[in-house]
């Protein structure tokens, strides 16, 4: 697996990287890094893809020094500077979308184009998202997928210490614990006040059957961002890049090529 560990400030960040072409940063969602996911490999056919594991997740460190969402955004600014790629296209999924939005707001000189996929970060009183931390595994599965059969296609990054009967449960506790920093009790850390400053061309991708984040959120992102368009993907839930990989890749590549 194309994994390296990058030292960024006081953090050791694992980075999945592959491919060649224009640089692209992928920020993963609240559950885990997707590892060698087919959609990442497809993106790597035409881009130099860098997919870091978020600080505090899995084997990436440096979470303790992150006080808020801005520290998280700055951590990726440092990472991109460290990679030396110049401006990157950024795809942020789920929690990664919330961070990508903040990254674009605070480091516009490093972001060429922005793609937000079923992203957290906003709150609408009249149309509240699910509370992902109280759903039991079956409820979460139902919420995430248009067709739960797709669940078996979801991938995750390998860990060096996979032993032990409780390893998977403990890893999940660790990862979701980090997510609570930004998503608990309401996944709103003020992104709506910053999005109007993001002039970066942005594509809002939303799985039409996302049971965690209602489709009204795609419209709200588009309303707040001055330069955004929406691509709804039918037959997909919270992870359109997995459930409708072809449609996802087509929408993203068409946007990035414009």
């Amino acid at each position: 697996m194309p994994l390296t560990t990058q030292t960024v400030d006081d953090a050791q960040i694992r980075v999945w990287s592959a491919g060649s072409g224009s640089p692209l940063l992928f920020l993963h969602g609240f559950e885990q890094h997707p590892g060698d996911a087919p959609f990442l490999q497809r993106l790597a056919q035409s881009h130099s893809v860098y997919a870091p594991e978020l600080p505090g997740y899995g084997e990436s460190t440096g979470f303790e020094s992150i006080h808020d969402i801005f520290d998280m955004a700055m951590r990726f600014r440092r990472l991109v500077e460290h990679l030396g790629t110049g401006p990157v296209d950024v795809i942020g999924h789920c929690l990664g979308g919330m961070i990508a939005g903040e990254f674009a707001a605070t480091s516009p000189h490093l972001v060429r184009k922005l793609v937000l996929v079923d992203a957290w970060g906003l709150w609408i009183d009249a149309d509240q998202p699910a509370d992902p931390f109280v759903l039991n595994p079956e409820q979460l599965k139902q919420a995430k997928w248009h067709d739960v059969a797709a669940a078996e296609r979801e991938t995750s990054i390998a860990q060096s210490h996979p032993d032990g009967a409780n390893a998977a449960m403990l890893l999940r506790q660790q990862n979701l614990g980090v997510a609570t920093k930004f998503m608990w009790p309401i996944a709103d850390r003020g992104l709506s006040r910053r999005l109007p400053y993001v002039s970066t061309p942005t594509l809002i991708v939303h799985g039409e059957s996302d049971g965690l984040i209602p489709s009204a959120y795609a419209d709200e992102f588009a309303r707040l961002l001055p330069n955004a368009e929406v691509a709804r993907i039918s037959g997909a839930g919270h992870l359109p890049q997995v459930e409708r990989e072809d449609a996802f890749i087509t929408a993203v590549e068409t946007f990035l090529a414009k």
Partner: peptide
């Protein structure tokens, strides 16, 4: 008590859960 309210992720460290 809803079991989901009794064990939120991050409340206990991985070390303490183990």
């Amino acid at each position: 008590v809803n079991p989901a309210f009794a064990q939120p992720p991050g409340y206990r460290t991985v070390k303490s859960i183990a």
